[in-house]
């Protein structure tokens, strides 16, 4: 059986859901950032799959944009994380509740 668009969409949905569940249930901020990366990566897969289906290379351009956004997000996120760790000596999301009080 040939592999088509829907195969890739189902796989991307599964990876996105894994990332989403991980983001909610893990309390380590570093692992939460990794889960965001997973979700972005599944979006890339959808872009590439539709690009292949429609025969239009524009989807690849969007994936390149997504690479840049992901890199920027990781750089800023990790810088914030390092700074939080310097101030609070923890990266556990359950203990970083200053804004909730």
């Amino acid at each position: 059986m040939d592999v088509g668009l829907n195969h890739y969409l189902v796989l991307a949905a599964a990876v996105f859901l894994v990332g989403m569940v991980g983001f909610v249930i893990r309390r380590n901020t570093l692992v939460m950032l990794m889960c965001v990366e997973l979700m972005l990566s599944s979006a890339n897969l959808v872009f590439a799959a539709f690009s292949r289906e429609l025969g239009d290379v524009a989807g690849h351009v969007f994936v390149l944009m997504n690479f840049a956004v992901a890199a920027a997000e990781v750089a800023i996120g990790l810088a914030i994380l390092v700074q939080i760790f310097r101030l609070r000596h923890t990266v556990d999301a359950d203990e970083l509740t200053t804004l909730m009080e």
């Binding site: 059986m1 040939d2 592999v3 088509g4 668009l5 829907n6 195969h7 690009s51 292949r52 289906e53 429609l54 025969g55 290379v57 524009a58 690849h60 351009v61 390149l64």
Partner: peptide, 21 residues
């Protein structure tokens, strides 16, 4: 779950067409 409906040209996804876009 059909296969892909269209076929793509030989150089699809190579650096040159992507860069042109």
């Amino acid at each position: 779950l059909p296969g892909f409906t269209s076929s793509v040209p030989e150089d699809f996804g190579q650096p040159m067409p992507v860069a042109a876009k």
